[in-house]
Nucleic acid binder design. Structure first.
Lengths: 212, 212, 212, 212
DNA sequence: GATGAATGAGCATTCATTCAT
DNA sequence: GATGAATGAATGCTCATTCAT
């Protein structure tokens, strides 16, 4: 496991890049359909229409493919978030209320739009982040980015915000928004999406905005 | 899988009850130490100092032990919560502010005290609830209980509370508190426990209490 | 297997006889439903509503129960056959043709009426007689009886019969009749019962009777 | 059982074909020596000098090897029978008696020559055809072929034959011949081969030929 | 480089049989 | 005598990984 030889090939020719892409595509499909634990390397290779041996020239094991998949997903998300953030901050803000709303919308919509990820695959990612140190690390890196972004966002509007511990606030608000999103995606409690979003907005506004 | 014979032995003699307890104790230890997936039935039996066959007379497979373990944990938690709730509501409340504080403390402390569960085992439970339908069901049942309890709590103090969608509020607040607890337990972001609790309290008070 | 201790208890008290009967009844049901190989001792005991240990005080293993069951079945059959035979031979025969018909009917009806045994259990018995020496021996003993009976029957009417090798004839006719019965019971070829019986009669008459 | 993954490898390289043949050879030997039920997959693999896993890449379980073995045996038999049949019918027949004799010999000799199969293996096949639906199906397919062939044979000589229900006749004659063969092979009654064959011929001739 | 056959340790599960109560 | 819990060897099957072609 830990002492796996680090000899996974980095493809430089087109054929190699193609094979790697085929593996990742096949693995994503299988992890989504059957879950990470019930998928095995031979199966991924078969679905990717390559030989078992070829799989092992690109990845040392199943976990590496999974890691690569979630890194790509997170990279995608981060790019979208950054884009979103820049768009929002380009607008010249005029009043407090609008700012706060922006913030709330930022949180909610970003999270919602981010996780376009297939719900089954998302469950696999969340579970693996709990079970495996390496996957956990990848997820934490991503979360750190989001927190930093939110903290810097708060800084931009700090004069309109009633709280001061931006970091703790960012952690709680992001986690709360994320959980709201899971509730909606996994639909575990049966409370409707609209009601959750409305209350989430209310929480954010009341928490961040001073008495008007 | 689905067609597992429903022939798990129900111990009638003292010896049998002892064996079952030994299995659950050993399994809990191993799931905590090595995680669910890296633990196997033979190992549990060995640790419990019983034969492999004995394991399979009490449980049809590893998952059933896991299910029994978390059901016990949740039963424990529910009992504690109920106790806590009854103690709090016996006090004769005098003013709004105190009520809200009670609510906030209720949320935070309950969650904190609840999850005395070993952090590693907790991760296993959370992960399995994402990966396995049956474990998910057990967890959802528990969450439903907690939501209902919080909703009924809000009803008791409804005249002091500014919001009206108690159900959506309960879901969000519980999830947010739970996530805060996970942040503290798993210490992923490095923000200190006290700061998180303080902000959490602030969120709850601002969200629930009207302008004073 | 072979060196199993011969310590199966012979029940002398009523309770013991009852238990043994319960075991045989339960085993018969299970062998019929699930087949011999998929039935196990614990299951028989459970169905008989006795303890596993009790099973082993009456029988040394599963095969012994099976042997006892088929011995009883064969004893039953033999008694019926003998009865049938005696009834037929009491009639004072008057002409050749009638005798031959009697013989044909004897063969056909006896076989048909004999094997009232459940078709699934019959398959198990036939298979076990092929797979296991001891069961084979029990079956052969039974077949020997039937052959002897048929041979003695032929002797009684020898003046009307065109053949002389009674033993070989008995073997072939019995086997042929038995197979006809299996065809009817297991319905493998789809040829109707009546057609098979008619042709069987024809075979017997032509074979045994001289030109009239 | 029923939901066995249909992933038995079809060997493409020479090495693979060799392995599959080695498995079938080893399995045939073991089924013959020890019987189907007392043989297990690991043992077959060991005898074939391959790894357990290799066994399972070519067959999903023990039964599949058995099925393949008997299918090959039956294919062989069918080819021989067809050949035999064609040779016989090429001769220009001249009289009734000779035809009937041909038929009798066809039945007897074909059955005898067919079952060159090892007697122990034959017992296993017969038993499994009684115990297992899939094996039963394979055997029935083979029997159907033989019946059809015999019926068409009777048609060719229908003017010399006294009976009209060819299908029922074919079933009974084949079954009777088969049982005779088993008597000879398994030698259960002690009646000599020659006597049985002579009576069998007599049965067939009397049954099929009209009074001359 | 790619292939896919082979490996074999590893794991889940069963069940005939024993034996303490 | 009866009980039923305990045993543990046996077996079916999987799959990550290697390596000859």
């Amino acid at each position: 496991m830990a002492n796996s030889k680090n000899n996974a090939r980095v493809p430089k020719q087109n054929r190699g890049i193609e094979s790697k892409e085929k593996i990742i595509k096949a693995a994503t499909a299988l992890f989504t359909e059957k879950g990470y634990h019930k998928t095995n390397a031979m199966e991924i290779a078969a679905r990717a229409e390559i030989a078992t041996g070829t799989f092992y020239s690109y990845f040392n094991n199943k976990k590496e493919v999974f890691a690569e998949i979630i890194e790509r997903i997170f990279r995608n998300i981060s790019e979208n978030v950054l884009l979103n953030f820049e768009l929002k901050t380009q607008d010249t803000p005029t009043n407090t209320y609008k700012e706060a709303h922006l913030l709330a919308h930022f949180l909610i919509n970003r999270i919602l739009s981010e996780y376009k990820v297939n719900s089954k695959l998302l469950k696999q990612i969340l579970a693996m982040a709990l079970l495996d140190k390496e996957i956990e690390k990848i997820r934490h890196k991503e979360e750190k980015k989001q927190i930093d972004l939110l903290v810097s966002f708060m800084h931009t509007y700090k004069e309109y915000i009633r709280i001061s511990d931006f970091e703790a606030a960012a952690v709680l608000l992001l986690k709360c928004a994320e959980e709201m999103m899971h509730q909606i995606k996994f639909n575990s409690t049966g409370v409707e999406k609209e009601r959750l979003i409305q209350q989430m907005e209310d929480i954010v506004l009341r928490y961040l905005l001073p008495e008007s």
